[in-house]
Amino acid sequence: MSVQIETDQDRWDLRWAWALTLVLLGVDWIWAEQTGLVFVGWLRVACVPILLLAIGFLYGYSGRSRRLSDAGHYAALWLAFCAAGFVFTYVAATPAMPLRDAEFVAMDAAMGFHWLAWSRFVGAHPVIQLPLVVAYNTFLPQIVGSILYFAHTGQTGRNAEMIWLAMLGLIITTIVSAVLPAVGPYVHFYGRQTNDIVMLMSLRAGGAHPIALNTLTGIITFPSFHTVIAIIFIYVHRPPSHSFIPVAILNVLMLLSTPSEGHHYLIDLISGAVVAAICIAIVRGTMRPIKRVSETVARAA
């Protein structure tokens, strides 16, 4: 009976997560139409999630492998939501609200943090910078590794938590960044335009040239989504999961790397931690009641 309860809960989580993804895609489409933005390459992006979803259904409904079914379903959902989420960050930048870099620099200074000093310190010590660079770039590998690990070890509930936390985290982060946009300390202090900042400024200026989905990059400064996802990784790998210690160490390094390697203010990290805490509270408060209802229905049956 416990297996059936887990299956019902998982299906509930997946259905609602897909519904949210489709809603976000609808918001993207309407917003892009209103602002004149054109995104190309949808067919290429859709092929992989469709294939993974087919694998999930094949192995799930045939009963051949629950592990492969879970991995296929959650990997497909992650890819689909990432596409919708990245487009959402682009359309949300079009209102072109006033940049807040000066305020963020002042907040950092009030806390005794100076980005230029920290960045130069890290850059002058390769033995410190190398592990930070590596940790910062484990963002995508950790997503893939976590999906496979939780599917392989039968921790499907952790996969559900991770995708829901990431979805809420990206939506909240994007909305906040649209209201309080910034170009980041690297551009603010050095005046150098990176590719993502060029794109951000083009969006703010009303640029309507076609944007290829496979070229989308992160354009959010405040709050730091790297901070949000690092805390999410630590949370979903919490004990009794045996992966907790190595994942916690890796993501503490990711947090330390975010100011220098991700070009973020300290206030970006603090706000990202607040967003992560809010998302964890929401997911803990909603998923547990749903599970209790499923258990009650199963016992009554």
Score class of each variant (00 low, 15 high):
Leu140His: 09
Leu140Gly: 07
Pro141Thr: 10
Gln142Leu: 14
Gln142Ser: 15
Ile143Glu: 08
Ile143Ala: 13
Val144Arg: 00
Gly145Trp: 07
Ile147Glu: 01
Ile147Met: 05
Leu148Asp: 00
Phe150Ser: 01
His152Asp: 08
Thr153Pro: 06
Gly154His: 06
Thr156Met: 12
Gly157Tyr: 09
Gly157Met: 07
Arg158Ser: 03
Arg158Gln: 12
Arg158Phe: 11
Met162Arg: 07
Ile163Trp: 09
Leu165Gln: 03
Met167Val: 11
Met167Ala: 12
Leu168Phe: 14
Leu168Glu: 09
Gly169Glu: 01
Gly169Asp: 02
Gly169Asn: 04
Gly169Thr: 04
Ile171Ser: 00
Ile172Pro: 02
Ile172Ala: 10
Thr173Asn: 14
Thr173Glu: 05
Thr174Pro: 11
Ile175Asp: 04
Val176Lys: 05
Val176Leu: 11
Ser177Gln: 13
Ala178Ser: 15
Ala178His: 02
Leu180Cys: 05
Leu180His: 07
Pro181Glu: 01
Pro181His: 01
Ala182Lys: 08
Ala182Glu: 04
Val183Thr: 12
Val183Pro: 00
Gly184Lys: 06
Gly184Tyr: 10
Pro185Cys: 09
Tyr186Lys: 12
His188Ser: 13
Phe189Met: 04
Phe189Glu: 11
Tyr190Thr: 15
Gly191Trp: 10
Gly191Cys: 10
Gly191Leu: 10
Arg192His: 11
Arg192Met: 08
Arg192Leu: 11
Gln193Glu: 09
Gln193Cys: 01
Gln193Phe: 08
Thr194Pro: 03
Thr194Arg: 15
Thr194His: 12
Asn195Phe: 12
Asn195Pro: 13
Asp196Glu: 10
Asp196Met: 12
Asp196Tyr: 10
Ile197Trp: 08
Ile197His: 05
Ile197Lys: 10
Val198Asn: 12
Val198Trp: 10
Leu200Ser: 01
Leu200Ala: 03
Met201Phe: 13
Arg204Pro: 01
Arg204Gln: 15
Ala205Asp: 09
Ala205Pro: 00
Gly207His: 00
His209Cys: 09
His209Lys: 15
Pro210Asn: 12
Ile211Trp: 03
Ile211Asn: 03
Ala212Gly: 00
Leu213Ala: 03
Leu213Trp: 06
Asn214Cys: 04
Asn214Ile: 04
Thr215Arg: 12
Thr215Met: 09
Thr215Trp: 06
Thr215Pro: 03
Leu216Pro: 00
Leu216Met: 12
Thr217His: 10
Gly218Val: 08
Ile219Met: 06
Ile220Glu: 04
Ile220Val: 13
Thr221Leu: 04
Pro223Lys: 05
Ser224Glu: 02
Ser224Ile: 06
Phe225Asp: 01
Val228Asn: 11
Ile229Trp: 07
Ala230Gly: 05
Ile231Leu: 15
Ile232Ser: 10
Ile234Phe: 02
Tyr235Cys: 11
Tyr235Glu: 07
Tyr235Leu: 12
Tyr235Lys: 07
Val236Ala: 14
Val236Gly: 11
Val236Cys: 13
His237Gln: 04
His237Ala: 08
Arg238Cys: 06
Pro239Tyr: 01
Pro239Lys: 08
Pro240His: 09
Ser241Cys: 14
Ser241Asn: 15
His242Phe: 07
His242Ile: 10
His242Lys: 15
His242Gly: 09
His242Val: 11
Ser243Glu: 14
Ser243Gly: 11
Ser243Ala: 15
Ile245Gly: 09
Pro246Trp: 02
Val247Asp: 07
Val247Ile: 15
Ala248Gly: 03
Ile249Ser: 07
Leu250Gly: 10
